[in-house]
């Protein structure tokens, strides 16, 4: 019964990634290699981030929200953007269109994040006898994260790879990228600074990531038009 619950939560956490891969043309162009490479880049980025956090951050004994520390944390969080930049521009990809490249990168990024952050707690916790909503919420969070990663990758590819984009859209693109990149810090502020409950935070994450995904999609297709 508890194994059953574990499988449910695992499906919710990792299922969307698989569905995304198989439903979109990504599977037809065999972009798995790109996603795997991105996942490796994510791992390295995560390690660098951990080292930075350990070096620069004071260890706080209690869960108090300290603005200066949080600011530092947010800055370190931007290492993610650097990692994504590397994955999008420096990796040698097989000949796939920009359209698919950013999707493959975003997908690999989100999947690596889910595996790294959610698989172990899920394995340990969801099989326990005690029932909590925590792991279901965590699965939803993973969904939000997938959308966020895809939007960030889309915006990144607009910023760094596309040369001839409409001038009027450039500030919007940068603003959106900024918002998406600071989203983890915003969530952390809501969680610890304002003391929101987990369901509320996850709801917020789902809502904002969905909105951001829609906006970036619109931006991407708006930039697509003049080039084609």
């Amino acid at each position: 019964m508890t194994m059953f619950h574990f499988f449910n939560c695992a499906i919710l956490t990792f299922g969307p990634h698989a569905v995304y891969y198989s439903a979109t043309p990504l599977s037809e162009y065999d972009t798995l290699g790109t996603s795997v490479k991105t996942a490796v880049v994510y791992l390295v980025t995560a390690l660098v981030k951990l080292v930075c956090l350990a070096t620069f951050l004071k260890v706080s004994e209690n869960d108090v929200f300290d603005p200066s520390q949080e600011l530092l944390k947010a800055l370190i969080g931007f290492i993610d953007v650097a990692g994504l930049y590397f994955a999008l521009t420096q990796l040698t990809h097989r000949n796939i269109s920009q359209n698919h490249k950013f999707q493959a990168v975003g997908l690999g990024w989100a999947f690596a994040d889910s595996v790294l952050h959610r698989l172990a707690p899920l394995w340990v916790g969801a099989r326990g006898l005690e029932f909590t909503w925590e792991y279901v919420l965590q699965g939803l969070e993973s969904n939000a994260n997938l959308m966020l990663s895809l939007s960030l990758a889309a915006l990144g590819s607009l910023m760094w790879l596309r040369k001839n984009k409409p001038k009027t859209l450039i500030p919007i693109i940068y603003a959106c990228a900024g918002i998406v990149a600071t989203m983890p810090s915003i969530v952390s502020y809501l969680r610890w600074g304002l003391g929101w409950q987990l369901p509320k935070v996850v709801g917020f994450q789902l809502f904002t990531s969905f909105t951001m995904a829609l906006i970036s999609w619109q931006l991407f297709s708006a930039c697509q038009k003049p080039s084609s």
Partner: peptide
């Protein structure tokens, strides 16, 4: 003392997840 979820709940959850995916 554990608060446990029922099998029915997990079945419903599975159904919901399946339709979502």
């Amino acid at each position: 003392i554990y608060q446990v979820a029922s099998v029915t709940f997990d079945l419903l959850l599975l159904l919901g997840l399946g339709s979502y995916l």
